[in-house]
Computed example of a mutant assay.
Amino acid sequence: MSGTRRPVWVDVTILVLAAVMFASMIALGNWQMRRLAWKLDLIENVETRAYGDPVPAPKGAAPEYLRVFATGTFAHDQSLRIKAVTDLGPGYWIMTPLAGDDATVWVNRGFVPNGLDQAAWDTPKGPLGVTGLVRLDQPGGTLLESNQPETGRWVSADLTEMSRAAGLENAQTAYFIDAEASATDRGWPRGGLTRLTFRNTHLAYALTWYAMAALFLVAMGYVVRARFKATD
């Protein structure tokens, strides 16, 4: 007893969907390879910039993770909090303007946990020096949340909007400084929490997608071959 032959359009639809799936797997593998190149570049930048002797903070743009120092006076009354989650738990980064002779640069003084009374924060007075790492402007917010300057809710260091909210006219908006941890002071805010190690599994993911694409292609080859044999 012979069965009803499957319509040609069904075979065509299956082949089109299979081609889309195969192309998608290849595209995902290629995307992981691009991410791999980006991650390797990031790791190299950290290794070559973050551990050298500090240089004076540039007046203009600066490469991320460059170790710099700046001098000035903290304007604690203009500090802003940025939502953060660290190894110490949930809390905030404390961003404070450091007013120098020529310009003002934002400094991430470090992390404070939720619920810590502001009276417990260290608020150094007078001229001082800050050493830390350059971090670039972070406009807009994060993937899941947006900054809300009108309510004082910040999830990223949008330096232009932060400077506007704080009433700063000569602030550096290309980058801010992640302050290093003090060797003697373990109070709050807690500096030195810049993430300098990065998980790199992009090559493994890329090879997985390419392997899946190859296996899928072989499987579809068997299906097509079986279909042609069935029509003989």
Rank of each mutant, 00 (worst) to 15 (best):
W121F: 13
Q138D: 10
T131L: 02
G115M: 10
P113N: 08
R109N: 10
G129V: 08
D102L: 02
Q138V: 06
D117H: 14
L136N: 02
N108P: 06
A99R: 15
G100D: 08
N114F: 07
R109A: 04
G126N: 03
Q118E: 15
T123K: 15
N114S: 11
W121K: 11
L98F: 10
P127D: 05
D137P: 05
T131Q: 02
R135G: 07
V105L: 12
V107H: 03
L116Y: 06
V112E: 02
P113M: 07
V107A: 08
A119V: 12
V105E: 00
A103F: 12
L133I: 04
P113H: 11
P97C: 10
Q118H: 14
K125P: 00
A120G: 03
A99F: 10
N108Q: 04
L98W: 09
L116F: 00
P127M: 08
R109H: 04
L136H: 10
P97M: 11
V105S: 08
W106D: 00
K125D: 10
V134C: 03
L116E: 11
G129P: 00
T123I: 12
G126Q: 01
P124F: 01
R109E: 06
Q118M: 12
D122F: 06
G129C: 04
D102T: 13
A103L: 12
K125N: 06
R135L: 12
T131M: 05
Q138E: 15
P113E: 07
T104K: 09
G115A: 05
D117M: 09
L133E: 01
W106M: 13
K125E: 12
G100S: 09
G110D: 09
A99K: 15
L116R: 07
L136K: 07
R109G: 00
V130T: 04
D117C: 01
V134Q: 05
A103H: 14
T123E: 13
P127W: 05
W121N: 06
L128S: 08
N114R: 14
A99V: 15
D122Y: 09
D117T: 08
L128N: 00
R135W: 06
L133R: 08
N108F: 01
G110P: 02
P127F: 05
